[in-house]
């Protein structure tokens, strides 16, 4: 896929932002040498970007994460190296922002510098199988709350509609009208529709701009 220098991922919590972020970082790394992924999640206690630390490091991707992520220090801490993203214009960055308006607040700290440089995309990750964003209208509500909290405007949509391990090709195909509706009422283009590796083959000819994901973490 084509990326700007900075890719911001925001959305309702549980939409799969972290998973999309990690996979986009992998994709970026195939195009650029200097790639950074930043975990700015100040909300979620478990299942963080840091869980993919070894895999990311092995691929030569720099992980910026609060040193408290995954520990018992239960405070909304920001990683101190995050200014690297706005200071070093040679690198490409994916920023995994925490869920909802509460998570998006964290972005406010570096948003002005990102806006000023104006080489970014802010992606709205959506999933119609989440109970509070089942239709376009409720999804729009979440979008407005996030934009208000972080003082940035979304530039495109990432349709990540899924039912976890049980997602079928049909579930993904059925989510397309929803994503189109969100696109219509928000005026934002759909950057891609994400699908898990196993069903990529069966949907790639049926949906525009399909982005294959490798599941990051799984509990049996």
């Amino acid at each position: 896929m084509i990326y700007k220098r900075v890719t911001l991922l925001c959305g309702h919590y549980g939409s799969g932002k972290t998973n999309v972020a990690v996979n986009m970082a992998y994709d970026l790394k195939s195009q650029y040498s200097d790639v950074v992924i930043a975990d700015l999640d100040i909300v979620n206690p478990y299942f963080r970007t840091k869980d993919s630390k070894d895999d990311l490091e092995q691929r030569g991707i720099t992980l910026i994460s609060s040193e408290y992520a995954g520990t018992n220090v239960d405070i909304p801490a920001m990683p101190q190296q995050m200014y690297m993203i706005t200071d070093n214009k040679n690198l490409h960055a994916v920023i995994d922002v925490g869920g909802d308006d509460r998570g998006a607040l964290a972005l406010g700290r570096i948003a002005p510098a990102i806006m000023e440089e104006n080489d970014y995309e802010m992606l709205f990750v959506i999933n119609c199988y989440r109970p509070l964003t089942r239709d376009a209208e409720s999804t729009l509500e979440v979008m407005r709350e996030i934009e208000q909290a972080c003082k940035c405007k979304f530039t495109a949509i990432v349709n990540n509609s899924n039912l976890g391990n049980e997602t079928t090709a049909e579930d993904v195909i059925n989510s397309v009208p929803y994503a189109n509706e969100v696109s219509k009422i928000t005026g934002l283009p759909i950057k891609c529709t994400c699908v898990y590796g196993e069903i990529y083959e069966s949907v790639k000819s049926k949906i525009k701009d399909v982005f294959p994901l490798n599941l990051q973490s799984k509990i049996n």
Partner: peptide, 16 residues
């Protein structure tokens, strides 16, 4: 649309 929704355990308790 599928009858199922994707939920966190905590959310499932609240909605139920």
């Amino acid at each position: 649309m599928a009858d199922k929704v994707l939920m966190k355990g905590n959310e499932a308790i609240a909605e139920a």
